[in-house]
Amino acid sequence: MKIRELKELLSAELMTDDTTLLDGEVFNACCSDMMSDVLAFVKDQGVLLTGLVNEQVVRTASMMDMVCIVFVRDKTPTPDMIRLAEDCDIVVMKSAYRAYEACGKLYTSGLVAREHHN
């Protein structure tokens, strides 16, 4: 699924500058507020959905080579988080949907997590 399509599905607001990254693809999704759980599952080109707002969210996504972070329930990332994400070429957006609804929308639209490779 293209990140642009994901953004439309979640009626999300883009927080990072580089719109060319919206043409990137995501193949997997992970939804959690516990970053160590996120770090336990290696997946390629994933999107992270979370309601947690701190810089560790961006660092965790970066460690996992994730390409997109969606903050659910309209949680707003700080300017420092957005700068950090832009430095790592990660797309950041926020959506008014709750985590459960956001995951459901992506799943039923075909973003079904693949087997992890590790």
Binding site: M34, S36, L39, A40, N118
Partner: peptide, 18 residues
């Protein structure tokens, strides 16, 4: 710490795993 997204008891196991 848990409210910051860590402390799930996965740190050392993840370090060993990777």
């Amino acid at each position: 710490i848990r409210s910051l997204g860590f402390g799930a008891g996965m740190g050392l196991p993840n370090m060993k795993k990777y």
